[in-house]
Amino acid sequence: MKDHELIPLLSAIALAAIIAACLIGSTAMSPGRLLAALAGAGSTGDAIVLWEIRLPRAIAAFVVGAALGLCGAALQGLLRNPLAEPGVLGVSACASLGATLALFYGAASLSPITVPIAAISGALAATTLLSIAAIHTSSVITLILIGFGLSSFAGALMALLLNLAPNPFTLSDLISWTLGSVANRSFDDILLAAPLMVVGLVFIVLSRRALSALSLGEEAAHGLGVDLPRARSFVILGTGLIAGAAVSIAGAIGFIGIMAPHLVRPLVGHDPARTLAPSAILGGVILVLADIGVRLIPAPTELRLGVVAALIGAPAFVWIAIGRGRANG
């Protein structure tokens, strides 16, 4: 497949997935009623279901999936390893720890921007720590272990907060951050996170050529003219902003950042720069489809999106790790 065909194709699939997400639900909406609601005609009930519930939810799933797909592709390019991803490296866990801290101490009521800022601070703290570690070790295994440690530590602190939660209301709020979900998201939630994502996107786009150059290793990339400290800090800052903003919308959702780039890479000649955009779109598609699944699976209480993503993603992670171990002999 030609590169310039891939992005339009994936975009069309994304659009179809979002439309499907609007049609499918506890009560199915016919395409005719969907069009009427979109145009502002049709029944008030349909308009509310579409504009207040289904469309924001589908867009939130897409934006979060795209953010995670992009962060995965960028981190993998920087660390030159297909297992790097905000979830695996503990970035998402630290971001949700930041968000839960803000919720727990009531800072969330001060201003709507508090939770996104807390989430992003958590994400940046994690990415900074990882980048310092990356300077001192060339072993990606070490980095993944550090990420595992970060994840576990953030998880332990969150468990502590759950343990100390003063009332059931806070408890359910905290659980929803830990497990990840896009249910009941409004356009306001997305708009709050969007500017931070755009800033992060600029950092990633500015580093895309450096990511390609890093295919040759750090020394060769230096020889090509890559400003390594700059490239490293741009990718770290960019992924911290984007992953943190994604967590502020949906909580911690793992493995999308591994699956999307892995599927895209063979289609774009394995070039890290070309992997970025398609990974983002595919990550969005995967999460929209997973969220449709969440809504369709009959269960006494709705399944959490993060749980479903992990159920699909964790085996994929193991699969990729095994394939990689074999390739390296």
Binding site: N81, G217, E219, G223, D271
Partner: peptide
Amino acid sequence: SYLPQSRLLAWPVR
């Protein structure tokens, strides 16, 4: 320009 000792690539780029 620089040719380092290692010729390994992180990805099977074209």
